[in-house]
């Protein structure tokens, strides 16, 4: 009798491919790929059904380092290619990886449509506010005044907010993570994967060569407590070293303000409780900027709805059910025909 050996439990390292990683030493991408391998192990994800699809840029090298299926495609088009793959085989667990230029400049149109269609996949946007692979030009998320090889006296155009863009496109899952937060990032990835529909995750990623320290103002050890808020569904929106600060709707205004519990008669009851299904709240949380308000991190919005791939598959199933096994011979003979003797 054969005794079935239970499959060995996969470790994080089992999800790492044998390829030599080619990012710059100290790049935030190392931390993200590590967090992803941890996530995969925690989920015991089937590597043969997992696919990473990317465009072009530093972030887009990601698939080469995962021991899953991977497709490194062309600049900006990963979302479109991933949509085709998901339509063709809805069983696949598809993760799209792109940088800020890939996703929001050349690929902005495809990101818009993959989100509004609600294709069931995860879209990870590694935002480092710079074009790294082309040696440091400013990107669509760079702040006004960014000096770069193409803007030697500073950029003049306004940056786009990836999460506000995503919400505007109709994304039903919007989250944020920080590359170095190895405890939190896998949790965000797991939530993204369990969400049915397009899950959009912005990851603040440090480019050590061309834009080093661009997020220090809320990720530095000393800055985290007062400039970051970890949002969690059903929990009060508290932050600060001793969770003494909170967010509330400013009385008489349609805006959020930061308050301190114990000051001016403020109690915890005044503080907003995070409701990840509330799009208006999500929009306000995404718009927050330190130092006035903390940077919101975590699952900001999650409100599942029908997915494109399910809808499409249902139409095919319905079409197949409608008749007997279809015959092309029959189809070709439907309608007027005539016989030549």
């Amino acid at each position: 009798m054969n005794v079935a050996t239970p499959p060995a439990k996969l470790q994080a390292k089992d999800y790492a491919s044998d390829q030599e990683v080619r990012w710059c030493p100290g790049c935030g991408d190392y931390a993200i790929v590590r967090a992803m391998q941890v996530t995969m192990a925690e989920l015991q994800a089937d590597p043969s059904k997992t696919v990473f699809i990317s465009g072009i840029g530093c972030a887009a090298r990601f698939p080469y380092y995962m021991a899953t299926y991977g497709f490194h495609t062309i600049h900006g088009r990963a979302a479109a290619i991933a949509t085709g793959a998901k339509i063709a085989n809805p069983e696949l667990d598809i993760w799209v990886v792109g940088g800020d230029g890939d996703s929001l400049s050349i690929g902005g149109n495809h990101l818009l449509h993959v989100l509004r269609r609600n294709v069931n996949l995860q879209y990870l946007l590694f935002n480092n506010e710079i074009y790294g692979l082309t040696k440091g030009q400013y990107s669509p998320t760079s702040r006004v005044g960014t000096k770069s090889p193409s803007t030697p006296v500073g950029s003049v155009d306004n940056p786009v907010s990836p999460t506000l863009f995503a919400l505007g496109c109709g994304a039903r899952f919007v989250a944020r993570g920080v590359d170095t937060n190895q405890k939190h990032l896998p949790e965000v990835f797991k939530r993204a994967r369990s969400h049915i529909g397009a899950s959009f995750v912005e990851i603040f990623q440090n480019c050590i060569v061309y834009n080093d320290g661009v997020y220090d103002y809320f990720t530095e050890k000393d800055a985290v407590a007062d400039n970051q808020i970890m949002v969690e569904h059903g929990k009060p929106l508290l932050y600060g070293k001793d969770k003494q600060k909170g967010l509330r709707v400013k009385p008489g205004h349609f805006e959020i303000e930061s308050v301190t519990i114990g000051e001016n008669g403020i109690t915890e009851a005044d503080v907003l409780v995070h409701d990840e299904t509330n799009k208006m709240l999500a929009t306000m949380l995404c718009a927050m900027q330190p130092p006035a308000l903390p940077m919101a991190i975590g699952v900001i919005y999650c409100n599942p709805g029908p997915t494109y791939d399910e809808g499409l598959a249902a139409q095919v199933t319905e079409a197949k059910r409608a008749g007997a096994k279809p015959s092309l011979n029959e189809l070709l003979r439907k309608g007027p025909t005539w016989t030549i003797e």
Partner: peptide
């Protein structure tokens, strides 16, 4: 399965993605 894409590039990309997935 037919897919009306957002542009010509996406249409070709999606077709290629489908071939990648085995259609």
């Amino acid at each position: 399965v037919t897919f009306q894409a957002e542009d010509e590039i996406a249409a070709c990309g999606a077709a290629l993605g489908a071939s990648y997935a085995g259609n």
